[in-house]
Amino acid sequence: MCGDPTRQSCGGALAVLSPPLRNTRFMPPEMSGRLTFHDCGKGGSVATHVTFTPDENSTSNSVVGLDSCVVAIHETGDLTKSAIISPFLYKFNMTQGLPTQQVDHQEGSIEVPLSHPMKIEVGGDGIIGRRVTLWSQHVADPIAEGIIGYN
């Protein structure tokens, strides 16, 4: 398994978002962080909520402005194609999100209830292994992307 070997699994699904790999026509604001798909601690295999937590080192390490963003889960995990031409499986806004507090009681993430529950599995309608992009409604190109894996 990739990543930090000391990190404990929390259940659900996780996508680590970074600036897009492909050069874009415009320079959108940089955003990096983690999208966690979960069922609010119930331990099930269907996500009912998604939480975005910005990276501490990100140039935009706050959730301010995230409410104007759209999350798209693509049909494949192919990062070699432009996200603009990669078909979507699911798409949702972060507008209905509520800020949450981290352990140190600082605002650090935003949680959104999903209007359509998503299966945390591989294949079919499952989201594991699929490309995910974060889009600002103010620019044409994605501001962050990653691949969804088990958390």
Rank of each mutant, 00 (worst) to 15 (best):
H105L: 14
S115K: 11
Q102H: 10
P117Y: 11
G129F: 02
G97D: 01
I84A: 10
T95A: 15
V103Y: 10
T95M: 12
S86H: 11
T80Y: 07
Q102K: 11
L79S: 09
H105A: 11
G124D: 07
M94E: 08
P117T: 04
G108D: 04
P87I: 10
G129N: 02
S86R: 06
T80P: 02
G129L: 07
S115A: 14
N93Y: 12
E107P: 01
P87W: 09
I110W: 00
I85E: 10
M118S: 05
V122E: 07
F92L: 12
L89E: 09
F92I: 14
Q96M: 13
D104H: 11
A83Y: 00
F92W: 14
Q102S: 12
N93L: 14
L98H: 13
M94V: 15
R130C: 03
I127P: 00
I85Q: 10
H116F: 10
P113V: 08
H105V: 10
Q96W: 11
A83H: 00
G124W: 02
G123C: 07
T100P: 01
G124C: 04
Y90D: 08
L98I: 12
I120L: 06
H116C: 12
E107S: 06
H105S: 14
I127L: 05
G97N: 06
R130P: 01
T100D: 07
E107Y: 09
G97K: 01
H116Y: 12
E107Q: 13
L98P: 03
K119D: 09
A83T: 03
T100G: 10
Q102T: 11
Q106E: 10
H105G: 05
Y90R: 14
D125N: 12
P113M: 13
G129Q: 03
R131H: 03
G129Y: 04
P87M: 10
V112G: 00
G129S: 05
V122S: 08
T100W: 02
S109E: 03
I110V: 14
Q96T: 15
M118I: 09
P99W: 04
I128V: 15
G126H: 02
S109C: 07
V112P: 00
S115G: 11
V122H: 09
T95I: 13
P99F: 10
I84Y: 08
V122N: 08
M94K: 03
D125L: 08
S109D: 02
G97S: 15
M118A: 06
G108W: 00
D78C: 04
L114G: 03
I84W: 06
G108T: 00
V122Q: 07
P117I: 07
E121W: 01
R130E: 02
Q101N: 14
L79V: 11
A83N: 06
N93K: 13
S86G: 10
Q102C: 09
I120F: 03
P87H: 07
E107V: 15
M118W: 04
E111W: 05
G123V: 06
G129E: 04
I128A: 05
L79K: 09
L114C: 05
E121T: 14
G126D: 02
G123T: 08
D125Y: 08
T80K: 09
N93T: 15
G126M: 02
Q101F: 15
D78W: 06
K119N: 09
P113D: 08
K81W: 09
S82Q: 09
R131A: 01
N93D: 15
A83P: 11
Q96P: 08
F88V: 14
N93V: 09
E111Y: 03
